[in-house]
């Protein structure tokens, strides 16, 4: 099995891990974002709580969520290893540099760190509360996560934190999505323009979708809509 280890520790192998986990997490983002639109339903959160129950108890979804946790960890650990290795490859920096590549492509690690800290706050507020905290019950005897979300998003600074993190996510995706295909060797004159275009669209739509939810709840909680 040493060939597997050798493959994944080569610079291409590390990128394969980065791209496969990254693309899986893109899928996760799409699902997570669509589901959360139930927050916009005007039923005091009943549908959202029902959905939460399904997502946290249905066995198949549970398996997928464990895979997601694992992939997030792989993505982070592999990213750290890549970043450290790449740093080591240039011990002396240039006095003057005029980069011809995009800012986000050079700062994927920085953007990743911002997203990581967001993730910690996000998981603490909702995931941790739901699992270990005290959550009231709603009218259908489901855990009322909606009330916790509602409370969190009624604070402007909490919403602001989300919006900043979503910008970081958008930038991360704008490079990461198409980059994942290139890392997997999928660069083709017929498909690459589509992949690039879709990646750009994806990096706008996903953060935008995620941004609508806290903004909507905030406006509702503060009586503006």
């Amino acid at each position: 099995m040493s060939w597997v280890v050798n493959f994944f520790s080569s610079s291409v192998g590390k990128k394969v891990i980065m791209s496969l986990t990254g693309l899986f997490l893109c899928l996760f983002l799409a699902v997570h974002m669509s589901g959360n639109f139930l927050l916009l339903q005007d039923d005091g959160g009943l549908a959202f709580n029902e959905y939460t129950k399904f997502m946290t108890t249905f066995p198949l979804v549970k398996v997928v969520s464990y895979i997601t946790y694992a992939f997030i960890i792989f993505h982070i650990v592999d990213g750290i290893m890549l970043a450290l290795n790449n740093r080591k490859a240039r011990p002396v920096k240039y006095a003057v540099s005029k980069p011809s590549n995009s800012w986000q492509s050079r700062n994927m690690a920085l953007l990743g760190i911002v997203i990581f800290f967001f993730l910690v706050v996000h998981l603490k507020s909702f995931w941790f509360e739901l699992k270990f905290g005290h959550v009231p019950m709603d009218a259908n005897q489901n855990k009322d996560l909606y009330s916790i979300v509602y409370e969190a998003f009624s604070q402007w600074w909490y919403v602001a934190l989300y919006l900043v993190s979503l910008i970081a996510l958008g930038l991360h995706l704008s490079h990461g999505f198409q980059s994942a295909f290139q890392s997997l060797g999928l660069n083709h004159s017929k498909y690459t323009p589509f992949i690039k275009g879709f990646g750009l669209l994806f990096s706008i739509v996903i953060p935008l979708g995620f941004a609508i939810q806290p903004i909507f709840v905030f406006l509702k909680a503060t009586g503006r809509i």
Partner: peptide, 11 residues
């Protein structure tokens, strides 16, 4: 030889 890995920046 100590080269870094590619992050597809295109530089």
């Amino acid at each position: 030889e100590g080269f870094g890995g590619c992050t597809n920046t295109g530089a």
